[in-house]
Design a protein around this nucleic acid. Sequence first.
DNA 1: GCCCGTTCTGGTATCGCTACCAACCTATAG
DNA 2: CTATAGGTTGGTAGCGATACCAGAACGGGC
Lengths: 348, 348
Amino acid sequence: MAGKANGRKARNGRNGAGEITMSDIARHAGVSPMTVSRALSDPPSVSDKMRRKVDAAVRQFGYLPNRIAGSLSSKRSNVIGLVVPSIRNSLYAAMIHAISDVARANGLHLMIVNAGHGLEEEEALVSALLAQRVCGLVLHNTAHSKRLRELLARTDIPVVETGNLPGKPIDMAVSYSNFDAARAMTGHLGRLGYKRIGFVTLPLRDNDRSRERRRGYFAALKELGLPADPGLVLEAPGGFAEGADALVRLVQTHPDIDACFFAGDVLAVGALFECQRRGWAVPGRIAIASFDDLDLLRHTVPTVTTLRIPRQDIGRRSAELLVNRLRGASPQKVRIDVGFEIVQREST
Amino acid sequence: MAGKANGRKARNGRNGAGEITMSDIARHAGVSPMTVSRALSDPPSVSDKMRRKVDAAVRQFGYLPNRIAGSLSSKRSNVIGLVVPSIRNSLYAAMIHAISDVARANGLHLMIVNAGHGLEEEEALVSALLAQRVCGLVLHNTAHSKRLRELLARTDIPVVETGNLPGKPIDMAVSYSNFDAARAMTGHLGRLGYKRIGFVTLPLRDNDRSRERRRGYFAALKELGLPADPGLVLEAPGGFAEGADALVRLVQTHPDIDACFFAGDVLAVGALFECQRRGWAVPGRIAIASFDDLDLLRHTVPTVTTLRIPRQDIGRRSAELLVNRLRGASPQKVRIDVGFEIVQREST
DNA sequence: GCCCGTTCTGGTATCGCTACCAACCTATAG
DNA sequence: CTATAGGTTGGTAGCGATACCAGAACGGGC
């Protein structure tokens, strides 16, 4: 008799195996579940007495609110999705770190995926992140498949692109201009007096950043009045050995080369080490310039001239833009150019 | 009249602002929501005809299932939590990358947090991950606060510790022995004939890995019959400049030092560069050994003797253990020693 | 002491999906 | 032609939280 009547309410009672719920806490604190919810998510809205009761029960049971349920109910998740070409690359690591810090300070979590370097892959991964209902996205890539652009256009979550300054940002962009940076460094080398400037680029396929850098290189040569020799441009996957190899090939095919600009820092360091091995003076025999201010470049012998890209700032500001939007800032297209800086060191 | 009757069902109808739901897809495909659910999560359980109808509707609307709702309902999330001391460090990056690959292949996502190096911080972060109801955890740290151990003991999700081989794993462990590794390298240096072997350690506070390495160093000295001189041991935060500085200080205070073992690769490289700057022959004036086989160490001049720790394997196997458990493998304490390898190169 | 505006608190109805069970087919055997 | 098994399909009832509104408690002014 009572059995049946209790049956309905029993589901709020302790259920042998299930997790501790807000109702459990509420019951033990002698308040309603709503009060528990408020006490945890917006303490000032609850009286001291109630809050104390709730806090005590929460501590007693080691209660951890179920954010999945919370997200479903409130239609707000507290997870930011992040798509980078490679978690392994320390450049991205600096950016991820900065994003992570801002996110944490705002109670957000990070879901990070490796895009590899394919457009379809990126599309699939972003879809998966959207299915997880991330509340914001940071994409390093700025070249996207048509379907991905459509997909993102339909969602109303904030999106920041960070790898390049795109002509048409999907939503917001925080970056520097790869074109300007490569142009500036090439120009810098020209102004230092170098006449035969080689260029080693990272893979160009599906990568607008690499392509922009190469474009910048050629633009600068033109401005310097130097001939554009396609033989002075080499494409190489990023790696120490590949940088060394590229340098050697350039020197062999173009013995008159007097400087080389590497579009990736690891390539440049690999080349520098090769020079050390061969006893080539840097910059005596050949000058070496790099892209991205790896800490390492400040400590090699000689130290290496490079472009300082404020990767951390990019991460921090991207995250801040997301946070602001999540806090209700009106969705306006933002396009922040964080700029770059040429760091002249011993190698040029 | 019909108005009222429809009122009840209307909530399944298109609702102006809300997201596209499974019911919407079901209605347009002319099947029940359950069939849509099954068609998406377990295709073989649904007839071809039904599946085709569902797939068509899904594509037509660009439907992305709401995994938050799915997770709540099924009490299973598809997110793995990962706690590392620093996302920025490339060692962890290699491990993260491997975990990420395995996770992706199994439809899992990664939530990564920076623990910094404090025990309380780790506790708070893990709590947050548990609140997100991650389905598994990878912790790099093996020193935990008492409360964290209790917290993890109460949950029934699989946990893998990876930074060291702990005496009492919380659940599973995949690692190498920091003690054995440091002992082996120190022994190796002794067997090469070095008599005054310095040791530069990373910060020891709250870090059992560093402490184990130092313990290994002293154990080896004892085995070699060499005196343990506390003055030959220095503690330094990881960094190129710090490595250089430590080396210089050791050489100044102990001019008879003939080898130095750095418990962090960046420290070792910083020291090597300092030698290049000062024109000290390596290993002529002083031999340098490192911990962890950064790619860089294979390319410097001279190349650097180091310990190869299979970071990627650690990541891969950790993830695989988690996946197996999520697939239903019985929870047995696993403790995998992935070992290490001494890589003898030019610097010693 | 009474009225009304504030502040707090609690009940109810979802959020979008999946687990579970019941109902329904179709096919094969008896 | 019916009975039974096997494979599909659909209805119902939550998962654990929050939004929204209504009601209760409180406090001050006349």
